[in-house]
């Protein structure tokens, strides 16, 4: 099988040389573009590093490597990645485009919270996609948490969300996680539906977190996704999934910077344990090797 592309692989050429020259910069650019940082961020980072290299008057690729690591880490660390789950119940709404990993993330997250002995209920407010309710049901079972399902096929998702929060309030369940149907950010009607879900939930309690799930294989479209979901759903945190593949998800740097919304969780597999918090240091380490 072909070797997966990796930034560290691509950068081996850059830092393997004896001295920094033109091809070093070409390779650096290639590597950053290849990791989906996008042409803008790539240009900024490259310019910044050129300036530093000139300022410190170095020709050693090892210095450049360190500077690259520092630059990316510093930029990724500007925001606070902690989840705010102190409300009772703490309601978490999970949104995103189709197939990015919302339902799977909810399964993992529910388990993660169970590991800390928190009580959790999940709400199957994706009443549209084929077998979405059953899929969340399987995850709820695996995580050992309760679930609220629609009573009828195609029930209004906002009412499922409402009933989930209602159950949590009634039974003193600490955390509510609501699954929503995948929707492309360009579809006005579907985006408005998210606003409705939010409003209906807010009649009972404040929403603690609105998590936007972004797929690491996504390219520059991730920016447009973030922009629209922030506008329509008031996103408070990002989840980056599928980081176990060969894609590096570099576009999230631009998303973080342009929106001011931090990455809070990272998914790296289809297993129930494959979810972690976001650590810039680790992220950059995986990127640069």
């Amino acid at each position: 099988m072909a070797n997966p592309w990796s930034l560290s692989g691509a950068l081996r050429g850059v830092f393997g040389r004896k001295t920094i020259d033109d091809s070093t910069w070409d390779d650096l650019e290639t590597s950053l573009i290849g990791a989906d940082f996008g042409p803008d961020v790539t240009e900024q980072v490259t310019d910044e590093l050129r300036e530093k290299v000139a300022r410190y008057n170095t020709t050693d690729p090892a210095d450049l490597r360190r500077m690259l690591r520092e630059t990316l880490e510093e930029r990724l660390s500007k925001l606070d990645p902690t989840l705010k789950l102190s409300n009772r119940p703490a309601v978490v709404l999970v949104v995103g485009v189709n197939g990015v990993g919302k339902t799977t993330t909810i399964g993992k997250f529910a388990k993660f919270l169970r590991n800390f002995d928190r009580s959790v209920v999940v709400g199957a407010a994706d009443t549209f996609r084929a077998a979405a309710v059953e899929q969340l049901g399987t995850w709820a079972e695996r995580a050992g948490v309760s679930i609220v399902k629609p009573q009828a096929q195609g029930q209004d998702p906002a009412s499922v969300a409402y009933q989930t929060v209602e159950k949590a309030v009634r039974e003193g369940i600490e955390i509510v996680i609501i699954d929503t149907a995948g929707r492309l950010h360009t579809k006005g009607g579907l985006m408005d539906e998210l606003g409705k879900i939010k409003r209906v939930v807010e009649k009972q309690t404040e929403i603690a977190e609105v998590l936007l799930v972004l797929d690491a294989t996504t390219g520059q479209n991730g920016l447009a996704q973030a922009e629209a979901f922030i506008e329509h759903a008031g996103v408070t945190g990002l989840v980056l999934t599928k980081l176990d593949g060969s894609a590096r998800g570099g576009f999230v740097l631009a998303v973080q910077e342009q929106t001011g919304i931090p990455i809070k969780l990272v998914g790296q597999g289809e297993g129930i344990g494959d979810l972690t918090g976001f650590t810039p240091h680790v992220f950059v380490q995986n990127l640069i090797g």
Binding site: T217, S246, A247
Partner: peptide, 14 residues
């Protein structure tokens, strides 16, 4: 997926 980024090539080759 039409939204895929630079990973399209590595994935398609794989």
């Amino acid at each position: 997926d039409a939204m895929i980024g630079q990973d399209a090539v590595a994935t398609a080759k794989a």
